[in-house]
Simulated scan of single mutants.
Amino acid sequence: MDIFMHILWNNVLPLSVIIGLGMLLHRIFSLDIKTLSKLNFYLFSPAIMFELLYGTAISAKLFGQVLLFFVLFMLLQYALLEAVVRARRYEGGMRAAMRNSVLFYNSANYGIPINQLAFSGNPYTLSVQIIIMMMQSLIPNTYGIYSVNAHKADWRKIRRVIASMPVIYVIPLALLMRGLHVPLPEFAAISVGYLSDAFIGMALFTLGVQLGDMKGFLTRKLALDVGIATALRLIAGPLLAWGVVLMLGLDSLMAAALIVSSAVPTSLSSVLLAVEFDNEKDFASQSVLVSTALSIVTVTVVIYLLRG
């Protein structure tokens, strides 16, 4: 019960307040969601990624082990997801939206606090979570962009869009500067810090604006699709992660950190992609909202079982 209340009070409720403010202000002022989306993609997201990677010491061995887990985990998730997509006969933009809602999970503003809660601020498990967050930032800005545009644009146009995403340049830059011990000027560090601090609030606010833009309640079909995406994310996710860590024979602490990292709800990036490229925005928004609400129970169960 303590874990449940901690997640509710320190993770879900703060998120809900900012989402609610986005919904309210959009209803009052009709905010431009495209502008908010671009601020997230081109400014705030690259800043938080640079700050975390530049400021965290990560060994090559740890990086390799987590990366191997992540590749295997994503392949298994994709295989399961593809079976569901084919069984449900999703087409066009809905195929991409379903994939994004399951494959992209909230490893930043939800995953990092949960990691700190579950492992009492352990720097080793935090490093594991930061590597997962790095990959979960890179993939939406590459594969995610391709998936939401593949049914309506040619490869050359999609490639130009992907090449314009700052995150794909920020990640190697931060790692290179860290590895070569290149100092960041104080004024630049302060600026990056300000932008990084704005990421979580702006992403949640954007989700609220999108929810506020919805014209009605969930239809029966949309509710079923959201339910499927949520089950794949919150239940199948940690089960697949458990299988992968057993297969790799990872040490117990890393294994626990990776399982917890896989149990978090759908990422805000799925909504940002849906908004930016006009692809199943209502489904993406509801998937984030429902999975975040239900994660109070599922994440608590995962942490409890790992502690046992």
Rank of each mutant, 00 (worst) to 15 (best):
I19Y: 08
L268Q: 13
V297E: 12
N40Y: 01
L24N: 04
A174H: 01
D2Q: 15
A60I: 14
R95V: 15
I58H: 11
G193H: 05
V85C: 08
L103G: 06
Q65W: 08
I58T: 12
S252F: 04
L138F: 14
V297N: 15
V301C: 10
S267F: 13
R95Y: 02
R160H: 13
S191M: 10
V290S: 00
F277D: 01
A47D: 03
L258F: 10
M133F: 13
D197L: 06
T292S: 14
L204F: 11
P14Q: 05
Q129R: 01
N106F: 04
T230L: 00
Q286V: 00
L253T: 13
S120V: 06
G227H: 00
Q286I: 00
M214Y: 04
G121K: 07
M133H: 10
E91N: 08
S269V: 02
V297H: 15
I28Q: 14
G121V: 10
S269K: 07
V192E: 10
P172V: 10
D213S: 15
G201R: 07
L250M: 13
P140Y: 07
L224H: 00
R88W: 04
I171W: 09
P185F: 08
T219C: 04
V264R: 00
N40H: 03
L24S: 10
R89W: 04
L72V: 13
L207Q: 05
G212S: 06
M23H: 03
M247I: 12
M74K: 15
W9P: 04
E276C: 07
L24Q: 07
A231F: 15
I168P: 00
M214D: 04
I18D: 05
N141P: 07
M98H: 02
N279Q: 08
A263H: 04
N141Y: 13
L248Y: 12
L258P: 01
D213C: 13
F4S: 02
L250C: 10
I162D: 02
I132C: 06
M134I: 01
L273P: 07
D282A: 11
T266H: 04
S262D: 05
L294F: 15
Y194H: 14
P183Q: 06
S270A: 14
L207Y: 04
Y78R: 12
T56I: 07
Q65V: 12
K281N: 05
I130K: 00
